[in-house]
Design a protein around this nucleic acid. Structure first.
Lengths: 339, 339
DNA sequence: TTGAAAGCGTTACCAC
DNA sequence: GTGGTAACGCTTTCAA
């Protein structure tokens, strides 16, 4: 009724007729207590519905038992999926998860610093904070894992494979006879996109078109594609940096009366749910796995006796080209991959 | 180089030639310090790159400056969007966000209790933990906001409107001449779905079909729909509890050679991105807004002098029926709502 | 305006 | 095994 102020370990101790040291031990069953004593303590704790103060505990132990993750934004399925994989794996390892989105936050660095003071380690994704912030944090001794982001000396990095699939994708389009290819999306917006564009244009050889920069949502993709389609000599294929842009391009094509893939081929990246229903050729990324791996690596570093001395790991998670009907009239390589 | 153990307020104090009390004050610019003193302190703090220990601070202040949110799972766009709205609003209010997914966690209650010890307030969504856990927590004095979940005495609740749109949706289908309607999804899985089914069957009048229970993903929807379509007398319309099920139903119809909406009408709920591209009639929920509102209400409660004495608030956030082509040959009411 | 010192609620070391 | 008691690093009276 009036139990508004939480009971402390002292109340429990008094009620059980032991010292606070014993209560502490009994409750975290270090086996240094009699079964009988433990029973009494547990009973008392139960009766008072005692819960140890997390901050006192953290202060005394010098750790938080929590992980952080920093991502640009949560819009679109990509980051949500990564986050899901991360949270699941982290929880399994007994760690709480703090999240921080930096999109549109002028004080991103300050927020990341604050986050750092609340966790025992964190994952930093793509375009969120500059490298020097990461480096400074790492110098503190805070375990950090980089995700979908350019490597930094001494830090673990997990990325998804972009080169092979970008080449494969480009080759596939060229194989369909498409010659004028355009790339939609902003390579400066994320390291992944920079990669995709780089390998795409490398695969294209001499004629490297400048990227058609646009934001990563359906509307932006639609606008960009609309503009392209109005040119005198429109591209024959739109290679979009993510599925949302590609979906926007589909909309633009439909509105312009162009057939996909008859008049124009379109490809995306990520394989979000909608891609399957639109028949969009895209690249499947194991987003859950990215997140889960990050959580496990972080855990490894945090439990390692001397984190700084463990050599940095790098992992490139393989992706897969998913051919559907949007890329060409005749899916010659690979089959429809609807299921 | 060797700054592995973080500097404390004592180091800063010594370096600045003041007491720790002054450092504390200067750093949180309580105006009780000379400009000159503050400068010296800030300089020292900067030089040592001092960051106050979060746990010590929390212990001393008796608060965490953090919010929690408990959701079932993150798969599918629904919860991710809610989370996004929540995180954005919370960050704006200067609070960190801890997340906890309970899906498939046998010890959900224990985890929620742990979460509770790390935050100053939390949002509890749908089917995560039983009411008595919530009640017990609330009795502690912990501010709680319920989201997409049945109300509990004395607690703020935010839900999205289901009745009006369920009726409207059902009426619309009936208006198209459909008579045998089936409901796909499990009303026991979430309070929202329970509502949707209840109002759907109420709108149907005497002939209330039992729900066709299935999980909330594409595959489950496809299986369930496939089974229905194989009946001698298959339904004329499938009212699906969410868009993923409806998308699965689309797949099933296609595979069975049935035309949508010619042979069978299909509707969903949530208006996920794919819905728009499939032309799925559905109900749009303001998921971001749900999350943002929850964050703000929680903040209100936490900053209120006497949280317990403020009367509980209830809000039902309006939703909107989005008519597309999957529900009937002739969208008579409303127009295509593609944009 | 500043400093000394008393908490905040644990954990963990050191005696007994 | 158990109890006393230093930490842990900060905030916040209370005096000066």
């Amino acid at each position: 009724m009036k139990a508004l102020s939480k009971p402390t370990i002292y109340e429990v101790a008094r009620r059980a007729g032991v010292s606070i040291a014993t209560v502490s031990r009994a409750l975290r069953d270090s086996h240094l207590v009699t079964a009988e004593t433990r029973r009494r303590v547990q009973e008392a704790a139960e009766a008072l519905s005692f819960t140890p103060s997390r901050s006192a505990r953290s202060l005394a132990e010098g750790r938080h038992a929590a992980n952080g993750i920093v991502f640009p934004h949560l819009v679109g399925p990509y980051y949500a999926e990564v986050l899901l994989g991360y949270e699941e794996a982290a929880a399994e390892l007994g760690r709480s998860v703090l999240i921080l989105g930096t999109e549109g936050r002028p004080d991103a660095t300050a927020q990341v610093l604050d986050l750092a003071s609340r966790v025992d380690g964190m994952v930093v994704m793509g375009r969120t904070v500059p490298d020097d912030v990461v480096v400074e944090l790492a110098a503190t001794g805070l375990p950090i894992v980089l995700l979908a982001r350019d490597p930094v000396d001494g830090l673990d990095t997990i990325r998804s494979e972009n080169r092979a699939t970008a080449r494969e994708l480009t080759a596939h389009l060229l194989g369909h006879g498409h010659r004028r290819l355009a790339f939609l999306g902003d390579p400066d917006a994320s390291p992944d996109v920079a990669d995709r564009y780089a390998w795409f244009s490398e695969a294209l050889g001499r004629r490297r078109p400048a990227p058609v920069r646009c934001a990563f949502d359906v509307e932006a993709g639609q606008r960009a594609a609309t503009a392209l389609l109005q040119r005198r000599n429109p591209p024959e294929a739109l290679v979009c940096a993510n599925d949302e842009i590609a979906l926007g391009a589909h909309l633009a094509a439909a509105k312009a009366g162009r057939d996909v893939p008859g008049d124009i081929a379109i490809t995306g990246w990520d394989d979000v749910m909608a891609a399957r229903f639109v028949g969009l050729t895209t690249v499947r990324q194991p987003m859950r796995e990215l997140g889960a791996t990050a959580a496990r690596w972080l855990h490894d570093r945090m439990s390692s006796t001397d984190p700084a001395r463990t050599p940095a790991r790098r992992r490139v998670i393989p992706t897969r080209l998913v051919i559907r009907r949007s890329c060409g009239p005749d899916p010659c390589e690979g089959r429809q991959v609807d299921p």
